[in-house]
Design a binder for these strands. Structure first.
Length: 119
DNA sequence: TTGTTGACTCCCG
DNA sequence: CCGGGAGCCAACA
């Protein structure tokens, strides 16, 4: 598997490597992924990396892009409501519950990246 | 090299 | 809770 600390890799490859470690039933935030990669300020770049994956919708990769949500516990859809619906559907199928406002309980489902806690 | 962009986040009303 | 503004930084034209 890819090493997210390998700076020779393209940024989005490192993002994917980290996201792949999130198990079903758990979620993570853009800021958390950025933190693992070096800085919580990389949140926007994490979003950019996932946007480049969107056209495939995971068809050609095993990246669980739907498990990445924003720091408020809600889904970012960049104007594409259809994709947001699919994301929520996938998460609920894995056991991640959303309230009526479209937000999930980060306290319960947020992934702590135990594999990279030393970073 | 410079300027723009944006699946973000934090802070203030 | 909702909206606006500032800061952030890799990719791209």
């Amino acid at each position: 598997m890819l090493d997210p600390t390998d700076r020779t890799l393209k940024f989005h490859d490192r993002v994917f490597a980290v996201v792949r470690t999130v198990p079903a039933g758990s979620v993570t935030t853009y800021g958390d992924v950025g933190s693992v990669l070096g800085s919580p300020r990389l949140a926007r770049q994490v979003g950019w990396a996932l946007a480049s994956l969107a056209p495939d919708l995971g068809a050609t990769s095993d990246v669980p892009w739907h498990r990445v949500i924003n720091a408020r516990g809600s889904i970012s859809h960049r104007g594409d409501i259809v994709r947001a619906e699919e994301q929520r559907q996938r998460l609920e199928a894995e056991g991640v519950l959303f309230d009526g406002n479209g937000t999930c309980d980060l306290q319960t489902h947020r992934w702590g990246f135990p594999d990279y806690k030393s970073l």
